[in-house]
């Protein structure tokens, strides 16, 4: 496993390059091996336009935060598929759906767009139509530091 990671994983500059190619309207940078990528996502032409921030490094898993507009949470009704730090849960950790050999531009960003679509639909109907798994604990985040039992170990 360790060997595979060593030869397979994509550097942050490669990731950044792919993001710029696929989504030329976004802006980002790489500093001290940390990638930060800001872009607007509009999941459908009838949807709101969301400013999102993606952060990633080889030490941390990709995280997507919605910066604006503020996501709406109806009373006593937590927004589904989010981690405790409000980042979006976009894939099932440890399942191989995402790993460091994959381009963020081809996975995390399209998944965030889907997430926002299903979020708006959930706001309007009360039902999450996007499928999914499990239930992260309230303070759970997918970073290595706060990983819990229900968030399976993940190849680095």
């Amino acid at each position: 496993m360790a060997n595979l990671n060593a030869i397979g994983k994509l550097g942050v500059v490669t990731q950044w390059g792919a993001l710029r190619r696929q989504f030329p309207d976004g802006v980002g940078n790489v500093k001290r091996n940390q990638l930060r990528w800001d872009m607007q996502i509009q999941p459908t032409p009838l949807s709101d336009i969301y400013d999102i921030r993606l952060s990633y490094s080889l030490e941390r898993f990709p995280k997507v935060f919605v910066r604006s507009p503020k996501l709406v949470q109806p009373a006593d009704d937590p927004i589904p598929h989010r981690y405790g730090d409000d980042s979006l849960c976009l894939y099932l950790p440890g399942s191989g759906e995402w790993d460091r050999r994959m381009l963020l531009a081809e996975t995390i960003i399209p998944w965030a767009s889907e997430w926002l679509y299903f979020y708006e639909l959930w706001l309007g109907t009360g039902e999450w139509c996007g499928g999914g798994h499990g239930s992260p604990k309230p303070n759970e985040s997918e970073s290595e530091h706060t990983r819990s039992k229900s968030c399976p170990a993940y190849p680095r």
Binding site: Q22, I41, P43, P78, P80, L90, P110, G130, G131
Partner: peptide
Amino acid sequence: STATLITGTAPIPNTTPVRGHTFYGESKR
């Protein structure tokens, strides 16, 4: 441009296909 979703069978220029995945976490409201 803004990662807007497009459904369809044929590959469309200037788009990125979405890979299979599953949202993780509670989903009932």
